[in-house]
Amino acid sequence: DHIPWITAVLPTVIICVMVFCLILWKW
């Protein structure tokens, strides 16, 4: 059976995008 890697990667991607947007917003 396949491991849904997207389910494991998606939260990390969302957190990175939120942090990236927060850094851009504070500049």
Rank of each mutant, 00 (worst) to 15 (best):
D1F: 13
H2F: 05
H2Q: 05
H2N: 08
H2A: 02
H2C: 15
H2I: 09
I3D: 15
I3E: 09
I3Y: 13
I3V: 04
P4V: 02
P4F: 05
P4N: 06
P4W: 08
P4K: 08
P4H: 05
W5L: 00
W5H: 03
W5S: 07
I6V: 08
I6Q: 05
I6G: 04
I6P: 10
T7H: 05
T7P: 09
T7R: 07
T7Y: 00
T7C: 09
T7W: 01
A8E: 15
A8K: 12
A8Q: 12
V9A: 10
V9D: 11
V9S: 03
L10Y: 04
L10S: 11
L10V: 10
L10A: 04
L10P: 09
L10F: 06
P11K: 07
P11M: 00
P11V: 00
T12E: 02
T12A: 06
T12V: 01
T12K: 11
T12N: 13
T12R: 04
V13W: 07
V13T: 04
V13G: 03
V13F: 01
V13C: 12
V13D: 02
I14T: 10
I14A: 01
I14M: 06
I14S: 00
I14K: 04
I15S: 00
I15V: 14
I15Q: 15
I15Y: 00
C16G: 07
C16F: 03
C16L: 03
C16Y: 04
C16A: 04
V17T: 06
V17R: 09
V17C: 14
V17E: 09
V17Q: 14
M18E: 14
M18R: 01
M18T: 01
M18F: 12
M18C: 02
M18G: 00
V19Y: 04
V19P: 09
V19K: 13
V19D: 03
F20E: 14
F20Y: 01
F20I: 10
F20P: 01
F20A: 09
F20K: 12
F20S: 02
C21V: 15
C21W: 00
L22N: 08
L22C: 08
L22P: 12
L22D: 09
L22E: 06
L22I: 05
I23N: 13
I23M: 02
I23A: 09
L24W: 04
L24Q: 09
L24K: 11
W25D: 08
W25S: 01
W25P: 02
W25T: 08
K26H: 06
K26G: 02
K26I: 01
K26C: 07
K26Q: 13
K26V: 12
K26R: 06
K26D: 12
W27E: 15
W27Q: 08
W27Y: 14
W27V: 13
